[in-house]
Design a protein around this nucleic acid. Structure first.
Lengths: 160, 160
DNA sequence: TATTGTTATACTCTATAACTATA
DNA sequence: TATAGTTATAGAGTATAACAATA
């Protein structure tokens, strides 16, 4: 890559500022649901199968103490359950509820609305390219990204 | 654009999480310089011409009280000067110094290092496409982006 | 002694509101 | 009365460290 010699045109800065905008807008739309953006990743990662809290923390990419708070809030809304592991009583298995799945779906639709706003300046080909590239970068950086939906639509995990 | 029905694959979420990563890494590299990411935009926006603090706040996209802090810190490092406007003594004209220009340049080089890390998973054409698209989105969203560097920007891809 | 989850705490970033000094 | 800048403060988001229960 050639020298840009400009911070405001660097990916580091653009992603940071754009991410701030995107997150803030998403949070606004999510508020009526009683959710915040970070909660959504938890729900989605729990969707295919239950997880312990430490595994969840690693998957979401936050520190365990943050998971405690998020789980408290999501449990209060009825989006998930903490079940004590009978085999190892230190562990809690976190399971998503039907309400949680419904919330995750609503959240995904709201995210699409924000996306549409952000993509306003782009033609469809660029919009598609942008999403593909970002998914690739995010995956390479170890960030939580759920499996691609085959056929471009539904999330079809090996449901449990 | 088709429904994704996934938050973690939405632009809103991807940009947020990626932005967080990018900003944090950039901040780490910037720390030895006594700068943080947001300072860099100030220096760059001041580069072509001095600005008053309110104009600067609007240009950077933060609230005026934040500008005060940033300016205090940048002034302490000798990166800029606040000059009282003799025509309107309420105003302060903010001017970048030679040291400030040098810092801005160093910062841009550090940003490039972070970019290289982030772009690791992409081929050159995708990397170029990503930057162009993000600049376009950021500009459309009213975020601060300086003019393209003359002579020093492109060549890499057979950009369509 | 190590590990799971929790609590307490602190730090960063950003915004709002009240204040000052000019106008 | 309005405006430029400042101060004080509060909120969200994240991280570290100490702690309880269990292994």
């Amino acid at each position: 890559m050639e020298p840009q010699e400009s911070v405001t045109r660097s990916l580091a800065f653009l992603l940071g500022k754009l991410g701030q905008t995107a997150t803030s807008r998403f949070a606004d739309r999510l508020a009526p649901l009683g959710l915040r953006p970070r909660h959504c990743a938890v729900l989605e990662l729990l969707s295919p199968a239950p997880l312990g809290q430490l595994a969840l923390a690693q998957a979401v990419g936050v520190t365990p103490s943050v998971v405690v708070d998020m789980l408290d809030e999501l449990e209060a809304v009825g989006a998930l359950r903490r079940v004590r592991d009978s085999a190892d009583r230190r562990r809690q298995i976190v399971e998503i509820t039907d309400d949680g799945r419904a919330l995750a779906l609503s959240a995904a639709r709201l995210a699409e609305q924000v996306d549409a706003e952000l993509l306003d300046a782009l033609d469809p080909a660029q919009a598609t390219a942008l999403r593909e590239i970002l998914v690739r970068v995010a995956t390479a950086q170890g960030l939580p990204v759920t499996q691609a939906a085959p056929g471009g639509g539904r999330t079809a995990a090996p449901s449990g």
